[in-house]
Simulated scan of single mutants.
Amino acid sequence: MKHNYFKYLLVFALLFPALISKAQQNDDLLNVLVKKNVITEQEADSLRSDEAVKAQKKKDAETANQHSITIGTRALQLSGLVQTEYEGFQQSTKTNTFLLHRARLDVKGNISDDWNYEVYTEFAGVNPKLLDAYTTYKIFDFLKITAGQFKVPFSYESLVNDSELEFIDRSQVVNALAGRSTDVIGNQNGRDIGAQLTGSFAKLDNHYLFDYYFGVFNGAGYDVTTDNNNHKDIAGRLVIHPIANLSIGADFYHGIDQFIVGTAKTATNNLRNRQGIDGRYVWNKLSLTAEFDKGTDAHLNRNGWFGQAAYFVWSNKLQLAAKYDTYDPTQTITTDRTTDYTGGINYFFNKWAKFTVDYVDVREQTTQIKNNLFEAQLQLTF
């Protein structure tokens, strides 16, 4: 019996340095031990089985931590997002209300190690809407090809996942210039149909120094069946990571799109251009974000910017946030700029449940209207 204990101890001592190596190296070592009659083939198979069980348990634990369902060997993953919101308006002409802000189902998976897909659907509102439906093929880290319907690579805040926003609503300038709620082409949720090249290159200290995006799009928006003109729009974005946790980005959008100008009754093809710069830095519990965007719609020039900070005051549970957000919809008019001051509190029950409270102090440039806003939102992801 003591001989067996010694033998297993010897095997463990020989195997321990290899435990952090690849499974193939472990298997080769076991084969050598069998050949030298240190252990039997049956004992080697038992050790291989134990390692396989441990590896599977670790994989299952990682999948469980993602809080998603994985089906099959090609990783069909189902996840979702539900955001229930209450809006309280200071303005007497608006009705305080509960609303279903977002209710989404996400289906994604891998066709192969280098080929994946995603289908993302929104069920909140009158009719379901297809948000994303695309496939991406990775040739190299510096070259990936994406085709279908997906987010246009313009504006840092527009590209942030809805579940990861530090405030309930996006900034005024992003809503106006990134194909969202107040854009001249209507609310396209920042998306369009087209194709793009993306990639990362110049690795430095375990992170890539540059990320790039370049895409060609219809310009007609998302969840549509046909383009509305023969012009194709282009968008590009370059992000630099000079140090870990710091991102500095610059982007552009150039298009000829259909929208109504001034008092016209019908939409016509007009110039729709955008340029922007942004930055984000995360240090321990503190995050700092800023973005400036400008755009031209037909003959109208618009611009705006925001700066925000968020800090976890209690572990990873309670986060305080503040934001300065200003937007000028018509630069030729000097009295129509609006500035929002937002204070927010985020409470994270866990990784999948968050409660957010925001208060927005709205300041018009000339005539101040009592239109401040109180918002509360419960977010669940699965």
Rank of each mutant, 00 (worst) to 15 (best):
M1T: 10
Y5T: 13
F16P: 08
D27T: 11
I39T: 09
E41L: 10
Q42V: 06
Q42I: 07
E43K: 15
S49Y: 10
E51R: 15
Q56H: 10
K59N: 09
Q66H: 08
I71S: 02
A75V: 05
L76H: 06
Q83Y: 02
T84W: 09
Y86W: 13
F89C: 13
F89R: 15
Q90G: 08
S92W: 05
L99S: 15
H101R: 15
R102V: 00
R104I: 03
L105H: 05
G109D: 02
I111Y: 13
D113G: 09
N116Q: 15
A124T: 03
A133M: 11
I145H: 09
A147R: 11
P153E: 05
E157C: 01
D162V: 06
S163D: 02
D169F: 00
D169V: 01
V173H: 03
V174T: 05
N175Y: 02
A176W: 08
A178R: 06
D183A: 11
N187K: 13
I193K: 15
T198L: 10
S200R: 14
F201Q: 06
L204Q: 14
F210A: 09
Y212D: 09
F214M: 14
V224E: 10
N228F: 05
N229M: 00
N229I: 00
R237Y: 01
L246D: 04
I248D: 09
G249M: 08
D251Q: 13
G262V: 01
T263V: 05
K265F: 01
N269L: 01
R272W: 02
R274L: 00
R274M: 00
D278V: 05
G279V: 06
H299G: 12
H299E: 13
L300D: 10
N303T: 08
N303M: 04
G304D: 00
Q308P: 04
A310K: 14
L320T: 02
A321K: 01
T330M: 12
D336N: 14
G343L: 12
G343H: 11
N346H: 05
D358P: 11
Y359R: 14
N372F: 02
L378H: 07
Q379G: 04
F382T: 01
